[in-house]
Amino acid sequence: MKLNIEQRKYIADVLKIIAIAQFAVIGYSGFVKGIASSFVGSGVMFAILVYFGMRVLEGGKDE
């Protein structure tokens, strides 16, 4: 699917917002409750979502 730069920026921003929100909810609650697996898993998910956001932005260079 071909996306223009504005669409790519929007998708990357949405992924960033989702990453921050899930880390705030799941990661913080895991940190407060002392559930290390929840905190670490949320951190990994944050990194994955940010990575995909960056890949969406870079996608325009491949076309």
Rank of each mutant, 00 (worst) to 15 (best):
M1W: 00
K2Y: 15
N4C: 08
I5G: 00
E6K: 13
E6M: 12
R8P: 01
R8F: 09
R8Q: 15
K9D: 10
K9M: 11
K9N: 10
Y10K: 12
Y10D: 11
Y10A: 11
A12K: 04
D13I: 11
V14F: 13
V14Y: 08
L15Y: 06
L15K: 04
L15S: 03
L15R: 02
K16A: 14
I17V: 14
I17W: 01
I18V: 10
A19N: 07
I20A: 13
I20L: 13
I20F: 13
Q22S: 07
Q22D: 05
G27H: 14
G27D: 12
G27Y: 11
S29A: 05
S29E: 11
S29Y: 15
F31V: 03
F31R: 03
V32P: 00
V32C: 00
K33D: 07
G34Q: 07
G34R: 02
A36H: 04
S37G: 01
S37A: 06
S38C: 03
S38K: 05
F39W: 13
V40R: 12
V40P: 09
G41H: 06
S42G: 14
S42K: 07
G43R: 03
F46C: 15
L49S: 13
V50G: 04
Y51S: 14
F52P: 09
G53D: 10
M54L: 07
R55M: 02
R55E: 06
V56G: 03
E58R: 03
E58C: 00
G59I: 03
K61C: 01
K61H: 07
D62Y: 13
E63Q: 05
E63L: 07
